[in-house]
Design a protein around this nucleic acid. Structure first.
Length: 421
RNA sequence: GGAGAGGUGGCUGAGUGGUCGAAAGCGGCGGUCUCGAAAACCGUUGUACCCUCGCAGGUACCCAGGGUUCGAAUCCCUGCCUCUCCGCCA
């Protein structure tokens, strides 16, 4: 959520910012509602001040045994007027809140202005694409051959878009999870186990609601949502809190499944495990002082890169164009992993700075050295997403004889197994 | 799921429908004292919004939302959460 005061004082900046994101919320409507709101507040507060004053006097008179009929009658009328104004005010504030909740975060100046992903800027690339002298099979083929990936079984149980890992395939995923959690916790991120089902309010806090409601699984009976990312429960751990500045920065990590309806993605990546309704992810979340957030963002990207470097997987870092930024993000780097079988760069991590956008929605604040209460900045990054990572390993570590080498860092997590098949 | 109890400021905990944003204690902060610290003493100690250049004002908030009333932390209704007991269950 943007600061209403900021919108009021800098409507042109806001309009230009949302335009860069190719969104068109009605900023003028917000400004007009804000004006109306303040007018009514002034009116109703003056009435309330009067009522409070006179009511106190009535109390005193009654105590003294005097009659106060006139004042009571007058205040009854004032009370009616107050009720009217309050109703009006509530309506306006609801409208304002609604309008405000649909305004995206503004992009940071260092995000390249552009329409979509084709305008993303490649910042750096790490590692060499493997140059195999044989035909590398896509992960779904090698996975099925080795008996470690069963897409048909996933479809049988849950329909398309679900996968089953078996034997060393399942073991490989578990090894990856442990490897990543160990890596991050060693660097100071505190491990968490969090709920996978959250309330609508929680979804609002990180900005998934109201705009992205269609992409999530909703449990109607309880009005609860399956999390699309651990970012949601982990960041919201701090909603409605006032932190002490000494508690910052907060570094957290959690492994969770992620559930996505992928509405609107029909027909894309239908094969394999590149776009599925459920996948696991290790997520990093930071809550930091505003003035440090862009340094923290760079560090967070490096933290995610560390995972891929450890696995010796070639990747590149992209600075997302404004038009490709998500609703809540001010700046975002994507990590894209090269997959030798499908011969594509796979988006495997998204590392974003939300500035105070989420904090304001969650009402998470901190008290600084001068006791001033302000919003911290929140960041998160995948460290990293699993299904695609497993896919990329099956492809990049594939050998001509149809076996797959286990990346060295994972062997301690797999009883020393060096290859699958 | 059933029965009961309860939700008050950072914490503990008081609060007859009127002067209560709320006693008291603890904690925190500032000061006096001290070489320094502890103790003691004094002072201070919520958030949001409206208004103002600032000072000063004003409004709201005692889990949340409604209601009764001239006036609600206090009375009524609904919801949520916590605790205890029972049932069910990994």
């Amino acid at each position: 959520m943007l600061d209403l005061k900021f919108i009021r004082e800098h409507p042109d900046i806001v309009k230009a910012g949302v335009a860069k994101k190719h969104d068109q919320p009605d900023i003028d409507a917000i400004l007009s509602l804000d004006t109306q709101r303040r007018e009514i507040i002034r009116e109703v507060e003056a009435l309330k001040a009067e009522r409070n004053k006179v009511s106190t006097e009535i109390g005193k008179k009654k105590k003294a045994g005097e009659s106060a009929e006139e004042a009571v009658a007058a205040m009854r009328q004032v009370g009616e007027k107050i009720a009217e104004c309050d109703t009006q005010l509530r309506e306006i504030e609801q409208k304002l809140q609604h309008a405000l909740s649909w305004v995206p975060n503004l992009p940071h100046e260092s995000a390249p202005v552009g329409f979509d992903e084709s305008d993303n800027v490649i910042v750096r690339q790490w590692g060499e694409k493997p140059q195999p002298d044989f035909k590398v099979l896509p992960h779904w083929e090698i996975g099925e051959k080795l008996g470690i990936l069963d897409l048909a079984a996933g479809a049988k149980v849950s329909g398309s878009g679900f996968y089953v890992l078996r034997g060393l395939g399942a073991r490989l995923q578990r090894a990856l999870i442990n490897y990543m959690l160990d890596l991050h916790t060693a660097d100071g991120y505190v491990e968490h186990v969090v709920p996978y089902i959250v309330t609508a309010e929680t979804m609002f806090g990180t900005g998934q609601l109201p705009k992205l409601g269609d992409d999530m699984y909703h449990i109607e009976e309880d009005d609860m949502y399956l999390i699309p990312t651990a970012e949601v429960p982990v960041t919201n751990l701090y909603k409605k809190e006032i932190l002490d500045f000494k508690q910052l920065p907060v570094y957290m990590v959690a492994h969770t499944p992620c559930f996505r309806r992928e509405a609107g993605a029909a027909g894309k990546d239908t094969r394999g495990m590149l776009r599925v309704h459920q996948f696991d992810k290790v997520e990093l979340v930071k809550i930091v002082r505003p003035e440090t957030s862009y340094d923290e963002l760079e560090d967070l990207v490096k933290q995610a890169e560390k995972v891929l470097q450890g696995l010796q997987l070639p990747y590149r870092v992209c600075n997302l164009a404004t038009g490709d930024l998500s609703f809540a993000a001010a700046k975002c780097y994507d990590l894209e992993l090269w997959a030798a079988g499908v011969e594509r760069w796979l988006e495997i991590s998204s590392v974003s700075n939300f500035e105070d956008f989420q904090a304001r929605r969650m009402n998470c604040r901190f008290r600084d050295e001068d006791k001033k209460v302000t919003f911290p900045h929140t960041l998160n990054g995948s460290g990293v997403a699993l299904a695609r990572l497993v896919a990329a390993i099956l492809e990049n570590y594939q050998r001509a004889d149809g076996t797959v080498t286990v990346p060295e860092v994972l062997r301690p997590y797999m009883d020393g197994v060096e290859k699958i098949g």
